[in-house]
């Protein structure tokens, strides 16, 4: 860090050009915004943790929900979301390389790395749309959402069946699995009781804000809210990066004598990656 551009009096904020933070106004405000945004996500994820724990017996496991991979058949739990995580980390790397190129006033370098960051962000958004499509669409087999009523477990506990999701054991649709266990295995329903459950219940495919084929509807709600809120951040990040990218090509920052704007949008972009690291762990892994 050899030489630096001294701030002009218009962008400095009093105090005789001295900042106790050693940062410009814009950079500091970006940091403050990120703190408040981080707390919003902390709130989302804590609430998610609460309900996940509260309904732990009937909460779906993400590895049973997100099993698709483009152009591949069969079951690939975690694989696609791992790829998405890799893409976002990669775009964070290209972003920080763009910032580094900016410090050397290397316009070509900034253009290249920021361009790659844009592509990474766009691929991530596409992947998220694809993931949402599969979650909303659900499986062909579907599941039965049970109607009003009560079910007595082998140990004598009485459970309300309203809204409980029962999965088919296989494609023949001859037996339903309840989310409650008898010993180590889930309780299986067949025969007359099965028909009764089907008549009282409702066949559902996929998920929306009120129904969820894979388990508790709150799982769907949190999925849509958390990944949706994060996706909105990625989207606005891509838009902001694009605006800065155009400015880089036009030479705006070269004329200004520094690429601090790339640093500021870089902070935002890394934050988006940071949030995804937490979403990945708490939503998909735990």
């Amino acid at each position: 860090m050899s030489n630096s551009t001294v701030m002009d009096s218009k962008t400095a904020w009093g105090g005789n050009n001295v900042s106790p933070y050693g940062a410009s106004y814009g950079k500091l405000m970006m940091w403050f915004f990120l703190i408040s945004d981080a707390l919003t996500f902390t709130g989302f994820l804590s609430a998610y943790g609460f309900y996940r724990h509260y309904y732990s017996s009937i909460w779906p496991s993400a590895e049973n929900v997100f099993t698709h991979f483009p152009f591949m058949h069969g079951n690939h739990p975690l694989l696609y979301v791992a790829l998405m995580t890799f893409i976002l980390i990669m775009s964070s790397v290209t972003m920080v390389l763009a910032v580094e190129a900016g410090h050397r006033m290397d316009k070509k370098g900034v253009t290249l790395w920021l361009g790659l960051t844009l592509i990474g962000g766009a691929i991530f958004l596409g992947s998220q749309a694809w993931e949402w499509y599969h979650f909303i669409h659900g499986t062909e087999l579907g599941a039965i959402e049970l109607g009003k009523g009560y079910f007595t477990l082998p140990d004598g506990t009485v459970e309300s069946t309203k809204g409980i999701i029962a999965r088919w054991t296989d494609e023949s649709k001859q037996a339903l699995l309840l989310p409650w266990k008898d010993g180590a295995d889930y309780i299986t329903i067949t025969g007359a009781q099965l028909n009764e459950f089907i008549t009282n219940g409702k066949e559902i495919h996929g998920a929306n804000l009120t129904h969820n084929e894979y388990g508790h509807p709150l799982f769907g709600d949190f999925f849509f809210f958390i990944t949706g809120f994060h996706g909105t951040h990625v989207f606005s990040g891509v838009v902001i990066n694009f605006i800065v990218f155009v400015n880089v090509i036009m030479g705006t920052y070269q004329k200004r004598g520094h690429y601090e704007m790339v640093e500021k949008v870089g902070l935002y972009w890394h934050f988006v990656d940071l949030v995804w690291v937490f979403v990945f762990t708490f939503f998909y892994l735990i």
Partner: peptide
């Protein structure tokens, strides 16, 4: 006079 703060650091 304290150092003016480093703004838009450049490096070699």
């Amino acid at each position: 006079t304290p150092e003016p703060y480093k703004y838009a650091v450049h490096h070699s």
